[in-house]
């Protein structure tokens, strides 16, 4: 009886975490280049119940589940739709690939191409991190530049001002979010040149959060939470009866 109390509690904790993750997806439903997360839970290892006082070969009753815990977070790298903005500094990637951004801590990757020019004319993210080209940073004199599908940057004077460093990863499970739209590569695999990626100027990639789906998940998680809460209340009532009423004369 007491064990089932704990079991229901682990379930509630998992549902709470799920709601936290879903809420973050909903919060970022309009964040350019955002990739939605999904929390996966799994059960704790089963325990074997044994009867005491019997020989070892006959003592086994069967497995007992001890509840559920959060297991892993899966980020969906499904592409968001491309939204036209008409701004020359807005870039979007169609296909598999990331922009490479240089931060103080090293190279980071992003799908959010809402870039700006800083005071020195470098192409930077909204947080001021420089965008990397294949040969150093991209420096432009004015926002009047063009960029082809392969990421070659041509400045206002018609000269080549570098080429964007577009990378892709075979196994995206090694990519982890850092906030500010950035991803870090935590696996050993090296970033490869993204050959299949196409750059579109004057577009932004919208978030891949599917609002209807997230709201459904939210409802499901909160109702499941409620179910477990009811179970706990029921167990509590039963325990109260066991303690206070059984054996009352």
């Amino acid at each position: 009886m007491l064990r089932s109390l704990y079991l229901s509690a682990t379930h509630m904790l998992v549902q709470r975490r799920k709601v936290d993750v879903i809420t973050n997806n909903i919060a970022n439903m309009d964040t350019a280049g955002y990739k939605a997360d999904k929390l996966v839970s799994r059960s704790f290892k089963d325990m074997l119940l044994v009867q005491t006082g019997k020989p070892a070969a006959l003592s086994s009753v069967g497995p007992l589940n001890t509840g559920v815990h959060i297991d892993e977070l899966i980020t969906s790298f499904k592409e968001g739709s491309l939204e036209p903005t008409g701004r020359t500094l807005d870039l979007a990637i169609a296909g598999d690939g990331f922009f490479t951004v240089s931060t103080l801590a090293g190279e980071r990757y992003t799908r959010n191409g809402a870039f700006m020019l800083n005071s020195e004319g470098f192409l930077v993210t909204a947080d001021g991190n420089r965008v990397l080209g294949t040969a150093g940073f991209i420096q432009l004199d004015s926002p009047e530049f063009s960029i082809d599908e392969l990421g070659n940057v041509i400045n206002a004077e018609g000269e080549t001002a570098g080429s964007l460093k577009l990378v892709h990863f075979e196994d995206k499970a090694g990519l982890s979010k850092l906030g500010d739209g950035l991803f870090i590569n935590r696996s050993n695999q090296a970033a490869q040149a993204a050959d299949g990626a196409k750059v579109f100027q004057g577009f932004l990639e919208t978030s891949n959060t599917e609002a209807a789906n997230e709201v459904f998940e939210l409802m499901a998680a909160s109702r499941t939470y409620e179910t477990s809460q009811r179970v706990i209340r029921m167990l509590d009532d039963s325990l109260a009866k066991a303690v206070n009423e059984i054996g009352r004369v």
């Binding site: 936290d20 919060a27 997360d37 809402a114 700006m116």
Partner: peptide, 18 residues
């Protein structure tokens, strides 16, 4: 699992003028 992360929401990063 280092990838088991939880986001804390959204911020306005910039207002961009056309």
């Amino acid at each position: 699992n280092a990838s088991l992360i939880l986001g804390s929401g959204v911020l306005v990063s910039a207002t961009v003028r056309s």
